[in-house]
Design a protein around this nucleic acid. Structure first.
Lengths: 115, 115
DNA sequence: CCCGGCTTCTGCTGGTAGCAGAACGGCCCC
DNA sequence: GGGGCCGTTCTGCTACCAGCAGAAGCCGGG
């Protein structure tokens, strides 16, 4: 696996984590059980459980199937996940190093993320 | 005539496709080359190319790395992708009787409820 | 106590993420 | 013409993990 190293410790939550939380929230708002959604989406219940807990990386087709089973479209889901990201990202506002690959002074380097 | 639409194909774009488009758009807005972003993200250039074209399914860590290399945070990225989804869907929504979702979805469902 | 809902363990298989290397086509400019 | 630059696409390879089944565990409530 490509050593991502520095970027693995992102202060932000990962995509799959925020997605899982949003999916669970949506399901619970509907009053559905895991087995209900899993059946409708055509996936196993334990796998859906793992998706909701952010432990596995669902494929695009899986995401579409689960979203469909929840009666939500992808765009709305993404907006909701973005909200989750914002909500979850509070703990570490630390700085992280962009490990520059020792080489070429790549031209337009003007990155500045101010806190 | 009377082309029967293939409903196996979700009218919505897949997550990876919309994500790829948004990533490319963001990179081009910055005036970056593939190699610039790939180096900063610590991934190979051909793989980044495939991600941007929606051909491969990037892991959460990859998404974070690329987003970081683009100087955009995950929440903003997701909002942008949601916009992509909406934009890409317009073409096919032309005539779709959006029946009330009151029933039960029997599979992956795509609803358009524009207020 | 049992039952319904969720989690978690083991184990298995196929698919594919992700890499390197290289070749190719489209540009643009000397 | 030809030489860079940039992106795409091919081959090939390995390691990892999605996704399933089966079953057991946990916990609250009737």
């Amino acid at each position: 696996m490509a050593e991502i190293l520095d970027f693995k410790r992102t202060p932000e939550p990962l995509w799959r984590e925020a997605l899982g939380r949003k999916l669970r929230e949506t399901r619970e708002d509907r009053g559905d059980r895991l087995v209900d959604v899993a059946d409708r989406a055509g996936i196993s219940v334990q796998y859906l459980s793992e998706i909701e807990r952010g432990r596995k990386e669902p494929s695009s087709e899986m995401i579409a199937a689960v979203a469909g089973a929840l009666g939500i479209d992808l765009a709305d889901l993404l907006i909701g996940v973005a909200g989750q990201v914002r909500h979850l990202r509070v703990q570490q506002v630390s700085h992280f190093h962009t490990s520059r690959p020792a080489g070429r002074p790549s031209g337009p380097v003007a990155m500045a993320w101010a806190a």
